[in-house]
Design a protein around this nucleic acid. Sequence first.
DNA 1: GCCGTTTTCGGCCCGACTGTTTTCAGTCG
Length: 573
Amino acid sequence: MPRANDAVEAVLLEYADLLAILSEDRFKPRSYEKAARAVGGYHADIGTLEPAEILKIPNVGKSIAEKIQEFLREGTIETLESLRAKIPPGVRDIIAVPGVGPKKAMILYQDLGIANIDDLRAAVESGRIAELKGFGARTESNIRRGLERLQQQTGRALASVAMDLAEDFIERIRSNVDVERIDYAGSLRRMVETIGDVDLLVASDDPVPVMDAFTGIDIVERVLAKGEAKSSVLTRQGLQVDLRVVPAEAWGAAMIYFTGSKAHNIRIREMAVRKGLKLNEYGLFDAKSGTLIVAQTEQEVYERLGLPWIPPTMREDRGEVEAALDGSLPDVLTQKQLRGDLHTHTNLTDGLASLEQMLETASAMKYAYYAVTDHAPNLFMQRMTDEKMLAQRERLRKLQPKYPRMTLLHGTELNIDPEGNVDWGPEFLDGFDVRVASVHSMFGQSKDEMTRRIVRAMENPYVNVIGHPTTRKINQRQPVEFDLDEVFAAAARTGTALEVNAYPDRLDLKDEHIVWAKRYGVKFAVDTDSHATTHLDHMRYGVAMAQRGWLTKDDVINAWPLGKLRTFLRKGR
DNA sequence: GCCGTTTTCGGCCCGACTGTTTTCAGTCG
């Protein structure tokens, strides 16, 4: 479902890369890069904006705005074409090799005629690179390793995989050496849906043993860099882990710096500069005297910049700084505010745990309500029948007295067929407390068909939640295509919640879509879609995605008290 | 190329590590 924004972002990033290779000006490429990110993260579809509105996008000025319009009109940009003519397209790929940037790529092209990755590989093999001015044997071997890494790169890791790795590292470092504090930061702390590398932060006055412990861990395949303040390793599974050591007094400033995002950091550092201050990982300083002002906690640093503390999941420079400045930063959903889970399975269908086991685990999470939503009959392989469903309801009702603090809800996950119908008629559907409905088949329908299909399901007065709305699986399956505006508008109109599926390889809806849907007044259900007791813990990823989508407890139906939830589930019936 | 509570020019976030070089450029996050 590409918005024009994605294409514009891509073309501006290409422009930035080509300028970085060709231009002496260091700042021009950065302008294009900043504009690209701003367009990519902009809330409105740029294809529908008037020229004056395009100019309002941050970091987009007259020149870039004109180029964007030219691109939207013509499909390309004349000046970009002339940049492209100067450099073979493969040179841009070379920048993606770790250790090679725009400057080295240009030298390789000019002096050795290296125009693509294959040329580069051949030049490495023949030993020609070490002879270049400014290059050497070490550089050549680094490029060789960079090429290897590029080849074996399996893509970015799921947040859950990176989290497990981070926690493993933290535990191993802690058990080997005394550290005052240790935690993960980076994109993992921001809970980006996939993680390129894991960032760890340690507070210690004695970094050397920390670095030794870090680089000596047995799952480390190779040490990429090792210094007193900073080291990087590559794990056997191919993930890079960076570790940074700072003094304990600087923990807050370092945490901000290492959590990012880069764009967010640049924003607040620019704010600091304007206030005559300087912000780095060691603290916030007076620019002139160099005197330290604050560094101990994130809260203090933000406060001194005139900002409230901003949750890590919001630090993407997608308007959070502006919102923080004018006091409109939302109090985003927390896991504590969630009162229940509305989408879970048992071994009656494809779950791994029994009803009793799931309830036992759920009750430990202190939920006020909990819905069991096994698959409905039309997902034939699950062999559900009306009788089995009703028998499960009986069992659930009998188990209720065991859980005086948790109301047990009987639900189902319906299948939305290609026409938008679901498994049962009104009479049977009426017997459930809650009904999730999801697309499980015919993913390849046209955009129009898929839009009609989902809208029709939402118009069903018994369908309460659309499960994993785009059905994507991260790194495995593309999302289905439907008209986002139409579906979001229909969700708001029909009183149907859209799911924020917390399963780590789904995370569906994703953050950008959540922001978009919220503008229509859509309500959401943050659910785990658990198929095992351990999956109930995945709620943290769903909450993170909701935070990244700027949702508050008012937007999320399973953060509501049961009475209010029940009213919503009636859909005005 | 963008931007402004030291505004229309002169800045542009900041620091660590590496390698090749004798003081720094390139890359990275």
